[in-house]
């Protein structure tokens, strides 16, 4: 531990409010996208499109048509987008915590949290 401590720019309460907000925004965004997809599926079916594009032939677990599907207002694309936002939320929460501990001037926990983030990203993108 260095004796020269960085200045505290975030109180513990502010830190909690930010982390809580990140989680809430992630969850609400995921719920809105998923809910929209579900509602649209009641109108045109999961394979359909609100713009009248021909039915999707891709497997619902195939995410490669996501952007095209969103533009064609396909229910399945909205459900997929909601799912991805939901899965990304914990990762964003850890990334936010790295910054939060930094601003709280807690170097030990900056190191711990950054290490967790690195391992998390590695296991998402490298372990197959």
């Amino acid at each position: 531990m260095s004796s020269r401590r960085p200045p505290v720019r975030l109180t513990p309460d502010q830190f909690r409010a930010v982390v809580s907000a990140v989680l809430r925004i992630g969850v609400v965004t995921a719920a809105v996208l998923t809910g929209a997809g579900f509602a649209m599926s009641l109108l045109v079916g999961w394979e359909g499109s609100l713009t009248g594009a021909p039915p999707a032939t891709a497997d619902p677990t195939d995410f490669s048509q996501l952007v095209a599907g969103l533009l064609a207002l396909r229910p399945i694309a909205f459900a997929q987008a909601g799912l991805l936002v939901l899965l990304a939320t914990p990762v964003l929460r850890v990334a936010t915590s790295v910054v939060g501990f930094w601003l709280e001037a807690d170097r030990l926990y900056v190191a711990i949290t950054a290490l967790v983030l690195a391992i998390l990203l590695a296991s998402i993108f490298l372990v197959r």
Binding site: G37, F38, W46, P60, P90, V91, I124
Partner: peptide
């Protein structure tokens, strides 16, 4: 637990084990 699950979620997605049409009512 969200972090633990997120770490392995990529594997399940790549394997095609996560069906968004089934997951939609579950997640909501």
């Amino acid at each position: 637990i969200g972090v633990t699950a997120a770490a392995s979620a990529g594997i399940y997605l790549a394997r095609g084990d996560v069906d968004p049409t089934l997951v939609a009512p579950v997640a909501l």
